[in-house]
Design a protein around this nucleic acid. Structure first.
Length: 486
RNA sequence: GCUGCUAUAGUGUAGUCCGGCCAAUCAUGCGGGCCUUUCACGCCCGCGACUGGGGUUCGAAUCCCCAUAGCAGCACCA
């Protein structure tokens, strides 16, 4: 009964039903290994994942590396790492460069069926004919001729650009993008990191081949693939294969971070960025470094859903999701930005015990030894301020002689501080601090924090009154933290 | 230009297929309050939208037409 009540608060986002998914689904995430995954990828990855969890089935990671020019050899590993971080239920992994022989066999079959032909026209010439809805001479070749030419392609009888395989579609189709699109091309010096080949499939062919071979039932991807879906249908029809169910979601605009792989790589090379996880980038590893949890990313993506409207991604919404996850677990500590030293007159030494978490006393406390001098945030100490409450310690009166403050002990009563509307501020014992720099997308914030923060390496904590941060590095010279969000 | 898709508050989203229960849901954001030894969390209150114009209908966010805006594709990229 109580469980039912608490589940009501979960607000589980329900995605629209998928047609024909009742008996389970086979879906795939198919990135190009050109760099690490970014937030845009996370949408496709998370949406597919959610449906597979909803209906049951298999989740195939398919690395689409059929364009040697767009491969970063390190990306194979990065993609897998990023998906592992996201926590997806991947059941199978295939790499297209391992499967070229399968595509070749299917191409031969398609030529035999009369569904494809080898075109030796100049690319520009073909384009002109296509725009005039006119067949190129190669289209009328016999199956036998096509098979001979196809064999010639595979045996290096052509150079790059001299021949390609085209799918027979409808030359009168109103959309020129549909007319006899290419399925295989020749690359002379591809320098592919995983395979030696001369003939490479184009995306539309290899995708159909693999979706069919792997039994993919449902495809969710961006609407930039709508035209590809229509093209791919021609291949399905030639083979007589069953077409998967498609959903195409709209474009997602993301502001504030760099997403373009080439731009990121350039910036890393010229030291503008520290690496793929530089927090100014939109990669998943950058989010991870900042303390965004994978669950928050997934939840934010599911909340966006599969609508075909173009949307703008909201960092606020992602931060809200993350805070729900991080707030209950993050320990609290003091960080004093831009510290000023304050010697407190008239106060006895005192040990303060501050809760590690305000709503979970069982977690314990940290101890701060007051011996006379403290560090305070400079922004809290200005001539119009005459009283402060040092959190978990006592009240301090400030008297001003011009610009020079004098700090005097003013009692332990919290009620007094409230009555005086004094700010309750974080502080540090001057004799027990470590230097701390908080890195934000806008720049660094330096100050000092409790020495105990050093035990939170790799964790997200909350600096009280400052915000959530992830402890990135701990050394003799101090602590480096990354700002997560408020 | 051609082909196609879309249009609900600052942002995301539900409702649109099968018109009335929608003076429009939920989240986030913002404003105010309560709680509180954090400007966090929690709780309460409030703000804020059906792109525009026609039409059909007793009745339209929902159906039709036009306009406008945005987006995608028109590669031997994925």
């Amino acid at each position: 009964m109580f469980a039912a009540l608490s589940e009501k608060h979960e607000h589980k986002k329900v995605l629209p039903d998928l047609e024909g998914a009742e008996n389970g689904v086979v879906m795939r995430f198919a990135p190009n290994p050109s760099g690490p995954l970014h937030i845009g990828h996370a949408r496709a990855a998370a949406l597919n994942d959610a449906y597979i969890k909803q209906y049951g089935g298999r989740y195939i990671l398919r690395i689409e590396d059929t364009d040697p020019k767009r491969i970063d050899p390190e990306a194979y590993e990065m993609v897998v790492e990023d998906l592992r971080w996201l926590g997806l239920a991947i059941t199978d992994t295939v790499t297209q460069s391992d499967r070229l022989h399968l595509y070749y066999v299917l191409c031969t079959q398609l030529i035999e069926k009369g569904g494809a032909y080898v075109c030796t026209c100049d690319n520009e010439v073909f384009k002109e004919l296509k725009n005039k809805k006119t067949a190129c001479p190669c289209r009328e070749q016999s199956v036998e001729t096509n098979l001979v030419l196809w064999d010639k392609m595979l045996t290096h009888g052509f150079k790059e650009g001299e021949a390609s395989v085209r799918i027979k579609t409808d030359l009168l189709h109103p959309d020129p993008a549909m007319r006899d699109f290419p399925a295989f091309r020749i690359l002379d010096a591809p320098a592919h990191p995983k395979v030696i080949a001369h003939v490479y499939p184009l995306m539309n062919f290899s995708v159909v081949a693999d979706d069919h071979l792997l039994g993919v039932t449902h495809v969710i991807r961006g609407k930039d693939h709508i035209a590809n879906t229509r093209r791919q249908r021609y291949i399905y029809d030639h083979f007589g294969w069953k077409v998967p169910v498609y959903r195409h979601y709209g474009r997602m605009g993301i502001e504030g971070v760099v997403l373009s792989t080439s731009q990121m790589r350039m910036g890393i090379n010229d030291k503008t960025y520290t690496g793929w996880d530089d927090i100014r980038l939109g990669t998943l590893r950058a989010l991870a470094r900042r303390g965004i949890s994978p669950e928050a990313v997934k939840n934010a993506m599911l909340a966006i859903g599969i609508g075909d409207t173009d949307i703008s991604f909201s960092w606020d919404n992602l931060y809200a999701e993350n805070k729900k996850i991080v707030d209950p677990t993050a320990n609290r500590y003091f960080f004093v930005p831009d510290p000023v030293t304050a010697q407190i007159e008239g106060a006895e030494p005192h040990t303060a015990h501050a809760l590690l978490h305000p709503s979970d006393a069982a977690r314990g406390t940290r101890t701060l030894e007051f011996t006379g001098t403290v560090l305070l945030p400079k922004s809290e100490v200005s001539p119009e301020v005459t009283m402060l409450r040092l959190k978990d310690l006592f009240n301090v009166k400030i008297s001003w002689n011009g610009d020079t403050p004098t700090f005097t002990y003013a009692g332990d009563s919290l009620a007094d501080a409230r009555a005086a509307k004094a700010h309750i501020v974080q502080w540090l014992p001057a004799q027990a601090t470590v230097g701390c720099t908080i890195k934000t997308q806008e720049g660094d914030m330096s100050g000092a924090c409790e020495p105990a923060v050093r035990s939170e390496l790799g964790k997200v904590i909350q600096f009280e009154r400052v915000g959530f941060v992830k402890i990135d590095a701990v050394s003799d010279s101090g602590v480096i933290a990354y700002y997560t969000h408020k």
